[in-house]
Design a protein around this nucleic acid. Structure first.
Length: 456
RNA sequence: GUGGGCGUAGCUCAGUCGGUUAGAGCGCCGGAUUGUGGUUCCGGAGGUCGCCGGUUCGAAUCCGGUCGCCCACCCCA
C-alpha cells in the first residue's frame, strides 16, 4: 500500500480505453450528424466569469456551480452549460456574421451537486444552436438534429421520443383560464414538476398560486392527458389558444415531411425549467421511461440581447452523454472494442529480430498497426499474443524466410498462410494478390475500424 | 443540503449463531508447447473484508462515526 492513496473526485469519471471508445463512438456520431446538417463546431473556455451564470439564473445557482476565486481575485466558475458561453461569444462577434448561424459544440460541463444515476458532476454535452432565425423551420431543424444524433447511435422509434410543447401556448392557456401574468412563471414551474409531484400535490400548488377551481381542474386535466386532441377539444372556442397552437402544428408538419414524425409527440407538461426559453421547447426521453431526459432544448429569443449582443432569435438543445450511454448499454448498442493491431510480427530466433524490426517499421510506415513481443518468446507464445491482440495477420520470420528475404504471412482468422518476398509485402500489402482475408479495398489504416451503424 | 440502502480479490459474488489460516467463478501471470494461435489441462500471484474507533477472550460478522457508491428528495444545464 502506498503511504497515501488518491481516489477520483466524487461524480467524476475515468475513461479507460474501453470506456473512452464508447465516448468517442458517441462523439463521432454527434459530429457526423451535426456536420451533415451544415453546422460548424466551436468551443470556448471551460472556465467563465461567475457572473455569466448568476446574471441569468440568480444567486441560488451558485450552490450548483463549481466556482471559486482565481488568484487574481476574480469570481469564476467551471461552465455548467454552454448556452451562456455561446451567447457571450456571439454578443461580441455576431454582427459581422451571415445569418442564420449554425454552430455546435461538445463541451465538458460541470456542476457541484450530489451525483445520482444519469447525473454526475461532470459530463459532456452536444450543443446545437441556430441563431438569427425566428421561423419555426429552425425549431424543426434543430429537433431533427437531436433526433438524428440519437438515431445515429442505433436507437429507433421504439427506444426514444421527443416531447414537444410551446411556452407561448402554455401562456395563452393560462391567460385564457384567467391566471394573472405575474403568476405564469410559477405555474410553469408547477407544470414542469407535475409528473413527479403527483396530481393531488399539483392541484394544491396551483390553488396556492391563487388559481380558481376551473383553472386548477383544467390544468390538472391537461397535465394528466396533455395530448394535442385534448387541447384542441378543450379550447375549441378559445381562438387565442388555437392560434397559439399553429406554430407547433407547422413544426410537426415539417418533421412529418422529413419522416421523423414518429419520434415527435406533443406534451403539455414539457415546459423546461430554465427561465430563458421563449417558444417551442422539447425534451427527448427513453420510451420505457426508465431514465431521466436524454436531451432538452428550445427557443430562447431574448438571451443574446440580455448578455449585450444584438437582439437575435435563437433555438438550440443540449444532449448529455451520461444518460445516452446508459441507454446504449441497456439496449446492447455499445460497439465491441476494436482491435488496436492489424499485424503481429513473429520471429523464431534472435537472428531474425533485426529483420523483424525492419519489417515492422516499414509496415507501420505504410499505415498498418503493427506489434510484436517485446521480449524473446517461443513461436507459440508469440502467436497467442497476436491472437489476443486481435491482429488479422501474423508475419513470421524464421531462418528459412530470412535466408530468402521473405516472410510467412498467416491469416489468423482462416489459418491460411503463404510465404512471400518481403519487398512484395511492402508493395502490395499483407493481403497481397491472393486475397487472403480479402480486404474490402479500404486503406490499411482504416482496417479494423468499428462497424458503422448507419441509419436508413 | 436531507432521508434510505449498500461497501469482501481486477470483475461478479458466497461467507451459517461472533470462533482456527476469508472462498468460488471469471480475469491476470506462468507451464504443458524451442517453427504455428484460439480449445483443454496443471500451477501461481492477488484481500488491512472501504476507513477510524468501540464492545468482546475473539469481529468480515455486533455498535458508533466517517468516506464512497446507489436510490429518492432538492435542483435541473
Amino acid at each position: 500500500m502506498p503511504p497515501q492513496s488518491f481516489s477520483r473526485l466524487p461524480g467524476f469519471r475515468d475513461f479507460v480505453p474501453g470506456e473512452l471508445a464508447l465516448r468517442n463512438h458517441v462523439f463521432e456520431t454527434w459530429r457526423r450528424v451535426s456536420t451533415r446538417y451544415g453546422f460548424h463546431e466551436y468551443d470556448g473556455p471551460p472556465l467563465e466569469p461567475l457572473g455569466l451564470y448568476v446574471e441569468k439564473s440568480g444567486e441560488e445557482i451558485v450552490e450548483q456551480l463549481y466556482n471559486f476565486d482565481d488568484k487574481g481575485g476574480r469570481p469564476v466558475a467551471l461552465r455548467p452549460e454552454m448556452t451562456p458561453t455561446l451567447a457571450r461569444i456571439l454578443a461580441e462577434r455576431s454582427r459581422g456574421m451571415p445569418k442564420p448561424i449554425r454552430w455546435f459544440s461538445l463541451p465538458q460541463l460541470f456542476r457541484y451537486e450530489r451525483s445520482q444515476r444519469g447525473r454526475l458532476r461532470e459530463h459532456f454535452q452536444l450543443n446545437v444552436d441556430i441563431v438569427g432565425e425566428s421561423g419555426v423551420a429552425a425549431d424543426a431543424e434543430v429537433l431533427a438534429v437531436a433526433v438524428d444524433a440519437v438515431r445515429g447511435l442505433g436507437l429507433g422509434e421504439d427506444d426514444f421520443v421527443a416531447r414537444v410543447n410551446d411556452r407561448r401556448l402554455v401562456t395563452r392557456v393560462l391567460t385564457a383560464l384567467g391566471v394573472a401574468a405575474d403568476r405564469h412563471q410559477d405555474c410553469l414551474a408547477v407544470i414542469d414538476k407535475a409528473s413527479r409531484a403527483g396530481a393531488d400535490a399539483t392541484d394544491a400548488k396551483l390553488r396556492a398560486l391563487g388559481l380558481d377551481e376551473v383553472a386548477t381542474e383544467t390544468l390538472g386535466g391537461l397535465i394528466a392527458d396533455g395530448t394535442w386532441e385534448h387541447m384542441s377539444q378543450r379550447f375549441a372556442r378559445a381562438p387565442s389558444v388555437l392560434e397559439a397552437m399553429r406554430p407547433l402544428a407547422e413544426h410537426r408538419a415539417i418533421l412529418d415531411a422529413m419522416g421523423l414524425g414518429g419520434y415527435v409527440e406533443f406534451d403539455f407538461t414539457v415546459v423546461r425549467g430554465l427561465a430563458y426559453y421563449t417558444g417551442i421547447v422539447f425534451e427527448l426521453f427513453d420510451r420505457a421511461g426508465e431514465l431521466r431526459a436524454i436531451c432538452g432544448g428550445g427557443r430562447y429569443d431574448r438571451l443574446l440581447e440580455l448578455v449585450g449582443g444584438e437582439p437575435l432569435p435563437a433555438v438550440g438543445f443540449g444532449m448529455g452523454d451520461v444518460v445516452l450511454a446508459e441507454l446504449l448499454r441497456d439496449r446492447g448498442l455499445v460497439p465491441p472494442e476494436a482491435p488496436a493491431c492489424d499485424c503481429w510480427i513473429v520471429w523464431v530466433g534472435d537472428g531474425e529480430r533485426d529483420l523483424g524490426m525492419s519489417l515492422a517499421h516499414r509496415l507501420r510506415a505504410s499505415g498498418y498497426r503493427v506489434m510484436y513481443s517485446l521480449r524473446p518468446q517461443g513461436l507459440g507464445k508469440q502467436l497467442k499474443a497476436a491472437n489476443r491482440a486481435g491482429a488479422a495477420y501474423a508475419v513470421i520470420i524464421g531462418p528459412d524466410e530470412a535466408a530468402s528475404a521473405s516472410a510467412t504471412v498467416r491469416d489468423l482468422n482462416t489459418g491460411i498462410q503463404d510465404t512471400r518476398p518481403i519487398e512484395s509485402l511492402i508493395e502490395s500489402g499483407l493481403a497481397g494478390d491472393h486475397g487472403i482475408a480479402a480486404g474490402s479495398g479500404t486503406s490499411p489504416s482504416l482496417r479494423g475500424g468499428r462497424p458503422e451503424q448507419e441509419e436508413a
